[in-house]
């Protein structure tokens, strides 16, 4: 039949995981800001937290759209199998993302306290629920299980901790003064929690996972990056802290890739090579991405440089 371009299949496996990593990092700090929102009660502070993510969250969330689209386009049987097996879990993710997306939009529409309280809760529930459930989903994917496995729940919590790690560093960039001191203080604690949860998850999942040089290296790298993160935060190098948080996220997704490969879906035993779409679909997809992804990168550089630096007084959501 059609001769499968193996190299392109592997490339797309990497690209799809990179989309996932981009989402978990970029929207991750939005989620982290949402978690920190729960810990702050002052109305002005909460307003600042919403203003910090205002221009970014929508663009950041598109990485999940391209992750879904990329998986659908490059590995249709994996997309179909994975999404239908984790039916309720994914609707949970969607529900959380609906809450997170709408809450700030609606929060701003009225001034009264009850309205703010409820949309504030919705914002927190969405911001914490989405990464938790996505973590459970990703762990289930790697382990080839469905339902709610203990190891997956721990991974879910680890992803939530990771979003707080990113969120605290992001607020280090976006806020100033005592508010910055207080919000960035959540970062080191979250980093420790993240490492501890990862260790617990690995212990729980150990019977199902094989440890090789790559995976051990990635775990060691994560520990080193977490250390670097704490140091950077302590020294007030917030951009560097944000970058190490990004490294931590990339490391986690790289672990996912290392454990999956050469399988694309351990539950069905489908390999990356077998699951990939044939020619010419995959070539067209690759061509389109080669043209578009540099543009996408430009948009993000543009967006983040327009809104670089701290939130200015008077800037609201």
């Amino acid at each position: 039949m059609i001769e499968l371009p193996i190299a392109l299949a592997d490339l797309w496996f990497g690209i799809v995981l990179a989309f996932l990593a981009a989402f978990l990092f970029l929207d991750g700090f939005d989620f982290g800001v949402g978690a920190i929102f729960a810990l702050r009660t002052d109305a002005t502070e909460r307003e600042q937290l919403l203003a910090a993510i205002g221009p970014f969250w929508d663009g950041n969330e598109v990485w999940l759209v391209v992750f879904g689209g990329g998986l659908f386009a490059a590995f249709p049987p994996v997309y179909a199998g994975l999404f239908s097996r984790h039916y309720l879990l994914l609707f949970g993710v969607l529900g959380a993302l609906i809450l997170r997306g709408l809450a700030p939009e609606f929060y701003e529409q009225r001034e009264d306290e009850r309205w703010h309280r409820w949309w504030g809760r919705a914002f927190v529930a969405g911001s914490v629920g989405a990464p938790f459930l996505l973590g459970v989903f990703t762990a289930n994917w790697v382990l080839g299980v469905s339902g709610i496995a203990p190891a997956s729940v721990v991974v879910g919590l680890a992803v939530v901790a990771l979003t707080v790690v990113s969120g605290a560093a992001f607020l280090g960039v976006k806020t100033r003064g005592s508010f910055r001191e207080e919000t960035t203080a959540y970062g080191p604690r979250a980093a420790v929690a993240y490492l501890a949860l990862v260790v617990v998850a690995l212990a729980l999942a150990a019977p199902r996972l094989a440890f090789g040089p790559t995976t051990l290296f990635l775990v060691a790298l994560s520990v080193a990056l977490a250390g670097g993160y704490v140091l950077a935060l302590r020294r007030g190098r917030y951009h560097l802290a944000l970058a190490t948080a990004g490294g931590l996220t990339a490391g986690l997704v790289a672990l996912v890739g290392a454990w999956l490969y050469p399988l694309a879906d351990p539950a069905t035993g489908l390999t990356v090579a077998d699951a990939a779409v044939g020619s010419p679909s995959i070539e067209l997809l690759t061509g389109a991405s080669v043209l578009l992804l540099p543009l996408v990168a430009t948009y993000f550089v543009m967006l983040y440089s327009v809104f670089r630096g701290p939130i200015e007084p008077g800037e609201t959501y």
Binding site: E61, V62, V66, G69, G70, V277, L285, F307
Partner: peptide, 20 residues
């Protein structure tokens, strides 16, 4: 799958970032 993925990369990214 292709059109949907390209929609995300070509249209949605453009729209969501410049909307910010």
């Amino acid at each position: 799958g292709g059109p949907l993925a390209v929609e995300g990369m070509m249209a949605f990214m453009l729209e969501a970032t410049f909307l910010g």
